[in-house]
Design a protein around this nucleic acid. Structure first.
Lengths: 335, 335
DNA sequence: TTATTATTTCGGAATAATCCAAAATGCACC
DNA sequence: GGTGCATTTTGGATTATTCCGAAATAATAA
């Protein structure tokens, strides 16, 4: 009933477990005949090596933990796939945790990944995360951590981000150049660096083109669709409503489009909409959503590359780096 | 530099490692004073227990593997979240593997999960999978396996499926009742049981309403969007083109809608379209997609429940079961 | 045959934790 | 102080594997 072990093989063949171990691991110091006998019996007994025992001994699991706040929208799954492809090539396995945007679940997940001794971590944190001690647990033991999208601004970790500032700047520039003057911005929580960068891009574009900044048109919210709905309705009810809307992400923009349509307003004639991320839905809805595209699977691949660089380095701390990837404005019918 | 262990704590406190172990695990046979001293030092040294060592000893990892063919579309992530919620309540962790619809990657993933000694498996296999030996490795060692959506028709494993037959029957019944006579069906590979069930529902509905079955209107394909595009174009180019299209899933239906629109045909006047799954995009596109909804996170929860039942049973084999969940037709503008 | 070298095998240590029987300690009572 | 009992602690075994120095065996040369 129990799993066969190398000791079972050794006993049945009348040899020592060390010899079996070497035969099974392509070690040179073993007679070819012995190796054949071991391999045959292993096959016959359906022997499967116990990775737990090896990991305990070598103190490396060849497993990378990936932590994301959610994976319903296309963004995080796509990043994960990119990272996984790259890591698999290097012989690493991947375990995925999602926190459902809950700080507490994130902390629990981090603890659990630490206890199971992952060799490294790729993270995008929750919107609630303000305290990063649960990641410091890793860096303190020299376990490399790479952040992407939502990043911990610490020099203990590598980061992969897109050029949020320029992406936002170009989006707003496009709106100004197509004649918009009252451009509202649905922004994320100020605690998220990418949210701040996008907001700065928005502000600088307005200033550069000498469009007056109206604080009542800038709304930071919690990224839930319910709140998005409420705030878009609020904006459209203003005495001087906006003639354009630039949102922190595509799901928000898509929700906005539903609200605008429901109010009988035309897109883009009455209100133009621009999102951020190029969610596949953007191309399918009517009108198509103008959006700032980011190289999603490249983000995952770069994050994996950063991590592998640190894992393979003799001095991992020296390999800490920040990668900034370009964005690209895709103009569709909504603007 | 190295991780503190219970032996470090024991040495520093001048007590035995067994006592430290008991103090740390809320075991009764330990003096309250000793426990306090141990807990304090553990905190101070930032001690984290090594789950690998415990798993090796107890031969259980409290980890469940989830294997899916992809997770870009909303379906699999949603199932995973449902399962994860249920498993977390019971104190289990989850590791997720995706095979990208590749049989070979699926086999590799199964091996890797086995080597890391997961306590159970939740699986939806690839469209290529014909041989299930890599799952038999688990059942042979009494490690419970639950399939969902795409299931291995074996009495060694539990299964969670929706009533594909009735869902498809009702979809086609709806099309007949709204006056359609030439209803095409884009079906999946015959090797997938859910694909066959949906096709049978389609056929029986036609027969029941005495609508002639035209084999040239039934196309089994490989579920890629490129092929979907080609086959929809092919159907629309027939001398007697279909006046309705029932597809195996929503992504296919959405692709079909793009093709039909591009050809200048009207939906639903010229061609009605019905999908399967109620992907969130379905409600957002123009026209809204009529579709057969399935209780997605309930599938995940039920799969987790099946697995937990087997894990907690003294005789896991007796707990093997099949759960069938109901579907519900959602009528929107496309029909 | 014997010495030398190369190849192959062996047995124990190590990894970090839990568990259990046995030993030690503490305390009350006579 | 000794006895009995409860509480607490100890040391060694256990889990599956790798690694390493030592030992055994085989092959080669003198």
């Amino acid at each position: 009933m129990h799993q066969p072990t190398i000791i079972d093989i050794a006993r049945q063949l009348g040899i020592s477990k060390s010899t079996v171990s070497r035969a099974l691991t392509a070690h040179p110091n073993v007679n070819e005949k012995t190796r054949q006998r071991v391999l045959e019996l292993a096959e016959k007994l359906d022997y499967q090596r116990n990775q737990l025992a090896i990991s305990l001994l070598t103190n490396q699991t060849r497993t990378i933990g990936i932590m994301v706040p959610e994976f319903i929208s296309f963004f995080f799954p796509k990043v994960i796939i990119g990272a996984q492809e790259e890591l698999a090539k290097a012989g690493y396995n991947v375990v995925i945790c999602h926190s459902n945007e809950s700080y507490e679940i994130e902390v629990t997940n981090a603890r659990s990944l630490f206890a199971s001794r992952v060799d490294g971590l790729i993270v995008s944190h929750t919107k609630e995360t303000r305290n990063f001690d649960h990641f410091r647990t890793f860096t303190r033991k020299s376990i490399p951590v790479v952040f992407f999208n939502r990043v911990w601004e610490s020099d203990e970790v590598s980061k992969v981000v897109v050029d949020d500032y320029t992406g936002a700047y170009q989006a707003v520039e496009h709106l100004v150049q197509t004649g918009r003057r009252r451009i509202a911005h649905l922004s994320g929580p100020d605690s998220l660096p990418n949210s701040r960068s996008r907001q700065n891009g928005y502000l600088d574009a307005l200033r550069h083109y000498e469009v007056p900044v109206d604080p009542s048109l800038i709304i930071s919210y919690d990224l839930t669709l319910e709140k998005a709905n409420i705030y878009v309705n609020h904006l459209l009810s203003l005495p001087e409503p906006p003639d354009a809307l630039f949102t922190i992400n595509d799901p928000t923009a898509i929700e906005a489009i539903q609200v605008i349509k429901a109010r009988g307003l035309r897109i883009p004639q009455d209100v133009a909409v621009v999102g951020f991320s190029d969610d596949p839905i953007s191309a399918l809805i009517e009108p198509g959503l103008t959006t700032v595209a980011q190289p999603v699977d490249e983000i995952g691949r770069q994050a994996a590359a950063c991590l592998l660089a640190q894992l393979q380095a003799t001095n991992p701390v020296a390999e800490v780096q920040t990668v900034v990837l370009p964005t690209r404005l895709i103009v569709r019918g909504s603007s």
